[in-house]
């Protein structure tokens, strides 16, 4: 083969190999680090994996925020109107965190279906309902509606 052609072929082969490795790595890392969002009812229904980083969110139930008296341990309940999810967290809650407002917690689910959060987010702007929460909640609601004829009973 002509040396220049061979050199060019080597380059092309190198680029193809490197690009495939990079693409495979990116796909793998995205799979590893992408955390999925689940609504409380999905978690109660056992759809969320245990011991894997996930995010969950909903409205913080009024009166459910319980601060420990001697540490920064805090627990609260988020709801999507169908099911409740207990969340525990240790640390400072964001400025916009409040009862009756939407919040998203990121962390791992333990075997008792309590979310051990490593991060709690409330939105920076005045949106009280992050789109993920709103979407997932309405999806969860529609699903439930198909199974139960009178879902509004559960809400009132």
């Amino acid at each position: 083969m002509h040396p220049i052609r061979r050199q060019r072929l080597q380059w092309v082969a190198l680029i193809v190999v490197a690009a495939s490795i990079a693409a495979a790595l990116m796909a793998y890392m995205l799979g590893q680090n992408a955390s999925y969002f689940y609504a409380p009812s999905q978690i109660v229904a056992g759809e969320a994996p245990i011991g894997v980083n996930i995010r969950a969110g909903g409205m913080v139930v009024e009166g459910s925020v319980d601060r420990s008296m001697d540490s920064l341990e805090v627990s609260f309940i988020v709801t999507d109107g169908l099911e409740n999810l207990q969340v525990t967290y240790s640390g400072i809650l964001p400025d916009l965190f409040a009862e009756g407002e939407a919040a998203i917690a990121a962390g791992k689910l333990d075997s008792k279906q309590i979310l051990q959060a490593t991060q709690v987010l409330a939105k920076h702007d005045e949106n009280y309902m992050p789109p993920e929460v709103a979407d997932t909640i309405s999806e969860a609601y529609q699903r439930k509606q198909q199974h139960q004829p009178e879902p509004q009973e559960a809400l009132q």
Binding site: D80, M129, A134, I137, Q152, Q156
Partner: peptide
Amino acid sequence: TWCFACRIEHP
């Protein structure tokens, strides 16, 4: 109807 909190508010 897509709004979850509205269900709570309605009563």
